[in-house]
């Protein structure tokens, strides 16, 4: 069977499972978790562009995500703007952040870039906490409106799940197209050998900024979806731990691959919840699982299904 047909069949089966799953679930906690999985998939797909493909370590996910969430939340609550327009504004904020963070990435790389993105994230968190007149400070922003279509408000978890599933599928399709196009190959070439792609007539500075922008747009869209889902935002959760969590999803699933990103996001969102019965030890057990993945499956769990590709490294 042709590789493309095989991919399409697997994708359709996965979409089918994602579509019928809520029909068998009535527990709100489980639906919450599934919505969180969709949001996390979007963030990891975005992170894949810069960290997975171009190999630039971005630890600023918390800052970018919260910028998207706050942009959407503040515009919606203070100006009464429709949440869909707020979502678009959050994406525009992503473009601004992506270009702004992309430029330093031309000068610094590796540990220094990681520190730059952590710095950005911390600045955002401190500003969100201290600009109390605008953001509500530590008390946060309340009463963020939900999404609505033709007057129908999406308040039930099941409805929100299906709405977010459609948005996530569009973004997955988009990410798949980019990863498997000239753009994806060029991003990967930057990671593998920047001098060679430069000598092929490609402006890698432009591509790096583009990859950062894609990452930021995906994260700010996820932030906006999150804000309109929970209806409340405060800055306390958006620290370095938040950002590292998404790098873990990327590594466990499989760097560079869209399917790997999705698998990583599902696994790393659900496993800690399944381990809650061991109470305070669950992070310890989860960390050991992560460590085992990094040691024995450095190309992520999808490499189990792609032996040829895993041989190459």
């Amino acid at each position: 069977m042709k590789k493309q047909n095989k991919t399409l069949i697997i994708a359709l089966i996965c979409i089918g499972i994602a579509a019928i799953l809520p029909l068998f679930i009535s527990n709100n906690y489980h639906l919450n978790l599934m919505i969180q999985v969709l949001i996390n998939i979007i963030i990891v797909l975005g992170l894949n562009f810069i960290t997975g493909l171009t190999g630039q370590m971005n630890l600023g996910t918390a800052g970018i995500f919260s910028m998207g969430a706050y942009t959407s939340a503040l515009v919606a609550t203070k100006s009464g703007v429709n949440p869909w327009i707020c979502l678009i504004l959050a994406a525009v904020m992503g473009i601004i952040i992506g270009v702004g963070l992309g430029y330093p990435s031309l000068r610094v790389s590796g540990v220094y870039l990681a520190l730059t993105t952590i710095g950005f994230s911390e600045i955002v968190r401190v500003l969100m906490t201290n600009l109390t007149d605008l953001t509500g400070g530590a008390l946060g922003v309340n009463n963020i409106p939900v999404f609505s279509i033709f007057g129908h408000e999406f308040r039930e978890n099941k409805e929100i799940y299906y709405l977010y599933l459609v948005i996530a599928l569009l973004l997955i399709f988009n990410a798949y197209r980019i990863v498997n196009s000239k753009w994806g190959r060029s991003f990967l070439a930057i990671k593998d050998n920047p001098e060679a792609i430069n000598a092929s007539g490609v402006n890698i500075a432009k591509l790096r900024i583009m990859a950062f922008t894609l990452t930021a747009v995906y994260s700010t869209i996820a932030g906006s979806l999150y804000a309109h889902y929970v209806g409340f935002m405060n800055p306390s959760a958006y620290n370095i731990e938040f950002s590292i969590n998404y790098v873990v999803m990327l590594v466990i699933g499989g760097i560079g691959s869209v399917a790997g990103n999705i698998a990583g996001a599902i696994l790393v969102t659900i496993v800690p919840e399944l381990l809650r019965f061991i109470e305070n030890y669950y992070w310890l057990v989860f960390s050991i699982i992560t460590l085992l993945f990094v040691i024995f499956l450095p190309n992520g769990m999808l490499s189990l299904f792609n032996k040829k590709k895993s041989m190459k490294k």
């Binding site: 000239k182 190959r185 593998d192 060679a196 792609i197 092929s200 007539g201």
Partner: peptide, 30 residues
Amino acid sequence: AQTRCSRTFQNLKLYRSMTVKENIMTGMMM
């Protein structure tokens, strides 16, 4: 490179995570 000057390297600079054909296709990006 855009003036149609191309090159190879003394120490190979291939993209190890791409197949031969994908490696070659990156040469046409511009």
